[in-house]
Nucleic acid binder design. Structure first.
Lengths: 251, 251
DNA sequence: TCATTATTCTAACTTAAGTTAGTTACAGAG
DNA sequence: CTCTGTAACTAACTTAAGTTAGAATAATGA
């Protein structure tokens, strides 16, 4: 039930946003968590559900999405290990979108009531969680721009840049190489394109020598050019410390 | 300096999300506010700015937007009178997008430090502000879907439905009629379309008898059909009370 | 191991929306 | 009342991305 190392991750994550004291940390560690494993493609939350558990992603990837009336899927966010999944949904009652496992995942669930109480008893912790959701929102905003105003090459380049930096920040990538456990269809649903066109663009990015791929592994060969083509600027990711530093001109 | 009626609006808004007690209300009223008027098109915040004042919109409309490297603008949100403008930007330090007046506006600015302190001293108030930003985020998500996966007729219909409900909720529209102080170019920047195409679609919606327009005033003639075409569902707006009730089947 | 199912990749063709280049209609300034 | 600028509107043409359909290549599982 209680899993100290699990919640250490939460403490570390929140501490990057707000300075916490011993009591704050203790209160976090006192949270009742419930660990479990979920298969790839398992739903963690469905649109319309009443959400009374907040999910923390311990390992594996997850994604948020909505399905339109015409049956088209739009992916709204990709989540990496270590991230909170439901701070977005859980305070507002009914979920307005789906959250689904992208790969097999280990998760820890925390009752919403306990989180609300934590936010009330320990306002610093509440503020840190708030900021966490604000960074999510900043990424949503950038995605609106990506999908609304950039062409297909830029959109995909931008997404690949974002994933590179977030994964490096999470310690899951080095030297612009990473595993991206997504199909081309899922990439299409992130970027508002069709799978066929994603394939064309991905090949083109390879042909241009910007990236190199093998199965699900991605290497960004020419970071500077990809960043330029993707119109990518780190600001919206709000890295506290300036972000991953081993990247050339990740300004 | 102190403007009781101004902050009443904040209290009312926050109370729709979380129950506040007398002390909570008093703490809000004690906030140091600074009222001023801004001309249409004036910038409230610019991308890259350090934000140390949070803006509350008292009257008039405002919008958030980003400009791509290629100079294309994408509007990310429209804000109505009574809404907080900078809870998104102000806790994260540097603004990652622009906030601009759409019309002449009256605003009240509050120092971020005072808001942080309020959130810390009065956790319920903090939670209510947090929830306010979560509703913003829910709208961002829906906009990703709108721009990513719906065709031009749906996109504009969806936007017109959203504005109708939010304006009714704010008491600024009745019987599906409202003033929308936006040019077709701005509508294009909301929907990821070109002004030319927005014009075509707007005319088409008129021809189909779904809406009727005159200058900046919009009337939704056939709510049910427009809602269906726009693939519009209220859920993402998270109205606490079920939302404006005088609309037929606004489910 | 073979069969099945997902995923990647391609080509040929179509279309929704963009582009360019205007005209028309207002609204505010002087 | 005319000038000026912005916004609305239109037509003709172009293009980026979608569609359809199928082959090649992994994975997965019985």
């Amino acid at each position: 039930m209680t899993a100290p190392q699990t919640l250490d991750r939460v403490v570390r994550r929140l501490e990057t946003r707000v300075r916490l004291d011993a009591e704050d940390r203790a209160a976090i560690h006192a949270l009742p968590v419930n660990k479990k494993t979920m298969d790839a493609a398992a739903y963690m939350v469905r649109e319309g559900d009443r959400v009374d558990n907040c999910v923390l992603l311990l390992s594996g990837f997850a994604y948020r999405h909505k399905i339109t009336g015409a049956g088209q899927r739009q992916i709204i966010a990709i989540h990496l290990p270590g991230e909170f999944l439901d701070l977005q949904n859980c305070l507002l009652g009914l979920a307005d979108h789906n959250v689904q496992a992208l790969t097999r995942c280990e998760v820890a669930t925390v009752p919403v009531a306990a989180l609300r109480k934590l936010a009330e008893d320990r306002p610093r912790v509440g503020q840190a969680m708030w900021m966490d959701t604000l960074v999510d929102a900043a990424i949503f905003r950038e995605w609106i721009v990506n999908v609304g105003r950039r062409d297909s090459i830029s959109r995909l380049s931008h997404l690949l840049c974002e994933m590179a930096l977030r994964l490096e920040e999470a310690g899951l990538a080095v030297d612009r190489r990473y595993q991206l456990p997504m199909t081309q269809e899922q990439l299409a649903d992130c970027t508002g394109l069709t799978p066929v066109h994603v394939n064309r663009v991905l090949k083109e990015l390879g042909r241009m020598g910007l990236i190199s791929r093998d199965k699900r592994s991605v290497e960004i060969v020419e970071w500077d050019r990809l960043q330029r083509i993707g119109d990518f600027n780190t600001r919206y990711l709000h890295f506290e410390n300036g972000g991953p530093t081993n990247l050339p001109s990740a300004h």
